[in-house]
Design a protein around this nucleic acid. Sequence first.
DNA 1: TACATGATTTGCT
DNA 2: GCAAATCATGTAA
Length: 234
Amino acid sequence: MNATPSFLPPNKWAKLLPREFYERPAYEVAPELIGCVLRREIGGQVLRAIICETEAYQGQDDQACHARGGPTPRCQVMFEEAGHAYIYFTYGMHWMLNVVCEEKGTPAAVLIRAIYPLDGLEKMQELRPRLAGTESWLGGPAKLTEALGLDRSMNGADLCDPESGLRVETGIYVPSEIIQITPRIGIKYAPEPWQSMHWRWVVAYPQMADLIGQARIRENMPVSKETLPLTGLP
DNA sequence: TACATGATTTGCT
DNA sequence: GCAAATCATGTAA
């Protein structure tokens, strides 16, 4: 990957996505999150990245969803207010980042599977030195949580709080033609039709790089006519 | 309390 | 292309 691009416009243009954005089914939120900016503040540093890949997990009917059996200590957050982070541990070593959707009581979340770095590359490489610099070093749900320093301690974090160390901002416009829609990854245990539901949205890295170079700012998010201004930006 | 397994990554063949 | 790594979680007992 090339050096940190200064392609995106100044941070002061970014808007925090409001809670209403998340208060709908995950399969509606997931494609809308493509192109949005994930913003992390850790150790006094700001890390930013564009969301490239998402998956939707929707409701107790969805047999691939952690919440299919009702609330448990792990997935409790999915039943709570939308706009919070659901971060869980799996395979004995990996943390996964999700964004909680839907009204309280209806479990739903969007798994963030890949991001493209904008700012704070140095810090990300420090947090995740193994493959830093290679093309896909943030292309994978466990890779990005490591690079952003996300773990249990950020589970339940409010992504809509301007003071939060993890939040989501408006980003770039991504034409729907370049978004691939496929079945979800790693859920072969799930019965049909859930295993084959096309609830995964992907933009390939090279195409995302091109888009970021063009920096077409996405002015209007579908649900959020009113967005909250960001504060305290460097 | 015990046990099977996973929204994965990596390295080796 | 395949299998090991590694442990919290959930389900069963």
